[in-house]
């Protein structure tokens, strides 16, 4: 008998009755679930501060260059941006439905909705790639080849610095999220989640909604900035 497994020694009955999927260091599934969700919320707080640095830079430079930021904003494709907003909100819906399917123990439905979420994420990134392509051809990508015909070229370049940094970081978060979603889809197909134990789906759902909300802030800050003027 080994003291390395004190549970087996002191609580032989309880250890045999441990629910499936309960990690060794938790007392109950609900404790494990609480810890899991709480951990994800703390992680998202960290993410807010991570994006917060960029938003601070945005506020500082927009205050310093209001006209240039409006000009840069006008050069973005509003239609593509709006379509992307709708696509991303749609993916949040399918993600929420995947979580619902996990809560109610519908194995196939989880997989279907996760795949739909990945597909919508793919559409978003595809449209984003098209937009980046346009900017590349127009020489609006910051760097030595940057070119701006109108006034305030330096301020406009700063707008595009922030545009690419913010949307790029957001896209990176989507790529990471989609990779994890793909893994979760496989596990879901193998039946890894039950109504009492689906922390990964639920936590990933929180993450996906967070990435969605970041875009809800980015869209008006980047695309709608100069529109009210005319």
């Amino acid at each position: 008998m080994s003291t390395a497994e004190p549970d087996a020694r002191t609580q032989p009955v309880a250890s045999k009755l441990r629910p499936w999927g309960l990690a060794h260091h938790f007392e109950s599934l609900s404790q494990q679930q609480d810890a899991s969700y709480f951990g994800m919320w703390i992680f998202l707080v960290q993410e807010i501060m991570f994006f917060g640095g960029l938003f601070t830079a945005y506020i500082v430079y927009r205050t310093a260059n209001p006209t240039a930021f409006a000009l840069g904003s006008d050069s973005l494709d509003l239609t593509l941006g709006a379509v992307n907003t709708a696509v991303l909100i749609g993916s949040s819906l399918t993600m929420a439905l995947a979580v619902w399917a996990a809560q109610t123990g519908r194995r196939r439905t989880i997989v279907v909705f996760i795949i739909l979420t990945i597909l919508l994420g793919g559409v978003f990134l595809g449209i984003k790639t098209v937009e980046y392509g346009h900017k590349w051809h127009e020489h609006h990508v910051p760097g030595p080849s940057f070119h701006w015909d109108g006034p305030e070229a330096r301020g406009v370049q700063m707008f595009f610095n922030l545009y690419f940094a913010m949307t790029g970081l957001h896209a990176l978060h989507m790529v990471v999220g989609m990779a994890i979603l793909a893994a979760v889809a496989v596990w879901a197909w193998r039946g890894a989640f039950t109504p009492g134990n689906h922390n990964l789906v639920e936590g990933l759902g929180l993450y996906w909604h967070f990435v969605d909300i970041v875009w809800i802030f980015l869209f008006p800050l980047l695309y709608l900035l100069g529109r009210h003027a005319g």
Partner: peptide, 14 residues
Amino acid sequence: QILATPVLAITLVL
């Protein structure tokens, strides 16, 4: 650690 470190992270990325 949670509230301050991410700001350093994004600053170093920039």
